[in-house]
Amino acid sequence: MRAVKNLLVLYTGGTIGMLQTPQGLAPAGGFEARMREHLQQLADAPLLTWRLHELTPLIDSANMQQGNWLAMREAIVEAVERDGHDGILLLHGTDTLAYTAAALSFLLLGLPVPVLLTGSMLPAGAPDSDAWDNLCGALRLMATGIDNGVQLYFHGQLLHGARASKLRSEAFDAFATLPRERDGQRVETIPACLDYRQPCQPVNLMVLPVFPGLQVGHLRGLLASGVQGLLLECYGSGTGPSDDQDLLDALHDARQGGVLIAAISQCPEGAVHFDTYAAGSRLRDTGLVSAGGMTREAALGKMFALLGTGLDVQAAEHWFALDLCGERAQ
């Protein structure tokens, strides 16, 4: 752990900096002036040098897309390698905050500085807002010392970037780390093909929950759209409709056609263990790879980073099954 001396605050939009418009709250620029004014009024303001960069266009995080993740990655790498910043504080909306934290955890593997994400449930300046508490708390962590890697700070909690999930839509303690099983073998050295300097491209991904009534036509129609990676949200320990041979054949054909298909558990406290039930084993035998106890956010972000670097399905499956940054193992 080390104190950050030259911080970049990367403002992407979100509730924390929103202002009221006739249509409702919307992202607004000029947040640096508001932030400096607030800090100047604090007797115990965090002591560190910082500058703020607005990533345009500012967005409500409900509009988050892969292109926004790649723009964040590019801005962060440029800030570190060109401008000499030794820490990044990313201000972000809460709707997709956990997804972005997970995606950046894999897009920035090996980056030698801490990246901390935060936001708020109410805009800065609103009565009883949590915005300044979250922002100042994050700044204090940076000023006193924080480990390298991607983390999320919210309501006094410091959470692993690839383990956090949003559990509540209104309460200030909206984010938590779910008690999901850790089962992966940790990679000792990040390979060059996954290093943060590696270019990444958008990927056609899809998340599909298993549910009573899922039909093979649904799956084949989805796969016909050119999906490169499919995250299948299974029941319990990784089960699904294993007596539907047409559905199993569709999964097998997709895997043979080069689609990465991974399974996670729908349960908030769960993990995939295909061999527990025959219904799980039959799914595994179609070519699914287990995400173990990873969250949806982590599994999707990892799939995006692996396939986005151009890895083929066999290589992507290999690295997906291993722990790259703490998403699968302690």
Rank of each mutant, 00 (worst) to 15 (best):
L141N: 06
M142E: 05
A143K: 01
G145N: 06
D147P: 01
N148K: 10
N148H: 10
G149R: 00
Q151T: 12
L152K: 00
L152P: 03
Y153F: 15
Y153Q: 06
F154S: 02
G156S: 07
G156H: 03
Q157K: 05
L158Y: 14
L158M: 14
L159I: 08
G161T: 01
A162T: 11
R163N: 11
R163H: 10
S165W: 03
S165N: 12
S165G: 08
K166V: 04
L167G: 07
R168A: 13
S169Y: 09
S169R: 08
E170F: 12
A171H: 10
F172Y: 13
F172L: 11
D173V: 00
A174K: 09
A174W: 10
A176P: 04
A176S: 11
L178Q: 07
R180F: 07
E181W: 13
D183E: 08
Q185M: 03
R186P: 15
V187K: 00
V187G: 00
E188P: 06
T189P: 02
I190L: 04
I190H: 03
I190M: 05
I190W: 03
P191G: 11
A192R: 12
D195M: 04
D195I: 01
D195C: 04
Y196S: 03
R197H: 15
Q198E: 08
P199W: 14
P199D: 13
Q201H: 09
P202Q: 04
P202N: 06
P202K: 04
V203E: 07
N204R: 12
L205M: 13
M206Q: 15
P209F: 07
V210E: 14
V210C: 15
F211G: 05
F211Q: 03
F211N: 02
P212C: 00
P212K: 01
P212T: 01
V216N: 06
H218A: 15
H218D: 14
R220G: 05
R220Y: 07
G221W: 09
G221P: 02
L222C: 12
A224G: 12
S225A: 08
S225V: 03
V227I: 15
V227E: 11
G229P: 10
L230I: 10
L230W: 13
